[in-house]
Design a protein around this nucleic acid. Structure first.
Length: 446
DNA sequence: TCTGGGGTCCTAGGACCC
DNA sequence: TCTGGGGTCCTAGGACCC
């Protein structure tokens, strides 16, 4: 048996953990540049706020008043009339430093409780219950829910079954019904069939929008109906990926616990706070992204064989000319050096940059990732790799001590120049770094 | 009417996940 | 006015080999 542990409304729960005034309120966390809703409290879901809606639509289309946490605090518990609004929602800018650290705390706790686990995303983890009886698993699930809530303030749900896909089904029921107290186990054929009969096909892990639409068109509306289709039909219409999903729903394990440490590709990209047009502005952005990719590579002990740079205009704007281009450059030798990454990224940028467009987003992607220790040497390569290694070591140690980007290369900017203000993102309602910055530690009146 | 059979490698694009 | 960021895996098709 295996389980999937999933944090409830993770980003919102992180904000709530440090701000009791949010209890009982509709709360959302927005994506970068305060763009879209990416996390919602139960109250916000109940108000009909959908995942991924643009923030401005909360007011314009849903007629909700969007307030910041500061405004709530200033009211000091006094009630305020809604005016013409239909409701009120508290919005936060996304604070990834906080969420990343809270995630690390949750995963560390989990690690102490289970023999083997796979961190699947910032808020989700598959765990192994190998060799445990049903009774032991139930006790372990309760321990997980209790301890994580108690030690971090984050509510989690546990789904348990024979396969990952069924565990995800179980997790859904654990979330949906309060009576389960945060955990649900599918361990009999009867439970499996019943769970799948009540599950809409589009809610199955691995069935996205496209396939859900296709399947409904074929009269397959529930997860159970999907398991009744022939394997041949599924393979023909949905490929081996669809077939695997079907097998997993039938209780045949296909997906194993994946404990791989290294990523196969790493990317850093941002939409800009304001659109930019000059090469200098893009150079500042792209060099920051490349430098971030290099740091991420070194963190996982890897080197990359190639680097891709891309730039694009705002494709939501019908009134402006559109442009997208990308370029991939090969490194002579796989590398994780900041200087080399930035150098190549800027070379690529110059080749794809066109004057006369308003750019909205840029990104850097590194691939062909190999362990840093096993880099294939290039006979004709002239770079002094030892010198680069030293520079990077200094870069990392200074930044570990004094904060990210405390030491950087000049082209990255950040000296209060105009080129930089424009592309850096808007985050108007950012919460504090309660767990990673001494200045932001919360005050408690005892 | 009919046009071989068996491979490898690479890339772009699509589907999915959170 | 305003629309995120970071991943994985598979497939089809093209170019090439004998």
């Amino acid at each position: 048996m295996l389980g999937v542990v999933d944090c409830n409304n993770f980003f919102v729960s992180c904000e709530k953990a440090f701000n009791p005034a949010l209890e009982g309120r509709a709360v959302v966390v927005l994506s970068n540049n305060d763009g879209c809703v990416v996390s919602r409290s139960q109250e916000a879901k109940d108000m009909g706020i959908k995942m991924g809606v643009p923030a401005y639509q909360l007011t314009e289309q849903m007629c909700l008043r969007v307030v910041s946490a500061e405004e709530i605090k200033e009211r000091k518990g006094k009630s305020v009339s809604l005016g013409g609004f239909k409701g009120e929602v508290v919005a936060f800018s996304s604070n990834y430093r906080l969420y990343g650290d809270m995630s690390r705390r949750v995963m560390t706790l989990l690690q102490e409780m289970v023999p083997c686990m796979e961190i699947y995303s910032i808020d989700e983890c598959f765990v192994s219950f190998k060799g445990m009886s049903a009774g032991q698993i139930a006790a372990k699930a309760q321990e997980i829910v209790y301890k994580i809530r108690k030690y971090t303030g984050i509510p989690v749900c546990v789904g348990i079954a024979h396969t990952k896909t069924l565990a995800k089904v179980a997790n859904r029921y654990a979330k949906k019904y309060k009576g389960y107290h945060g955990w649900c186990m599918i361990d009999t054929e009867e439970k499996r069939v019943k769970a799948l009969q009540q599950m809409e096909i589009g809610d199955v892990w691995g069935i996205g929008r496209r396939y859900a639409k296709f399947l409904k068109g074929e009269g397959v509306n529930t997860a159970y109906a999907f398991t009744c289709k022939s394997a041949w039909w599924v393979k023909k219409n949905m490929g081996v990926v669809g077939l695997r999903t079907q097998m997993e729903l039938n209780g045949e394990p296909v997906a194993q616990l994946d404990v791989r440490e290294e990523k196969k590709s790493i990317t850093t990209s941002r939409s800009f706070g304001e659109m930019v047009s000059t090469l200098e502005e893009l150079e500042s952005a792209v060099s920051n992204f490349a430098s971030s990719c290099a740091a991420k590579l070194r963190q996982q002990g890897s080197a990359a064989g190639c680097i891709t740079v891309y730039i694009l205009t705002n494709f939501f704007r019908e009134d402006l000319p559109k442009y997208y281009n990308s370029i991939t450059l090969q490194f002579p030798e796989a590398t994780c050096s900041t200087l080399e990454m930035v150098n190549h990224a800027l070379t690529g940028l110059k080749q794809i940059y066109r004057k006369g467009y308003l750019y909205k987003k840029a990104g850097v992607l590194v691939e062909d990732i190999v362990p840093n220790t096993g880099v294939q040497q290039n006979l004709f390569e002239q770079t002094d790799t030892e010198k680069m290694r030293c520079i990077n070591a200094v870069l990392d140690s200074v930044n570990a001590r004094y904060g990210r980007n405390a030491l950087k290369i000049a082209v990255q900017g950040g000296f209060g120049t105009q080129a930089e203000d424009k592309w850096t993102m808007k985050r108007n309602s950012l919460s504090g770094n309660y767990t990673t910055d001494l200045n932001d530690i919360i005050d408690i009146k005892a």
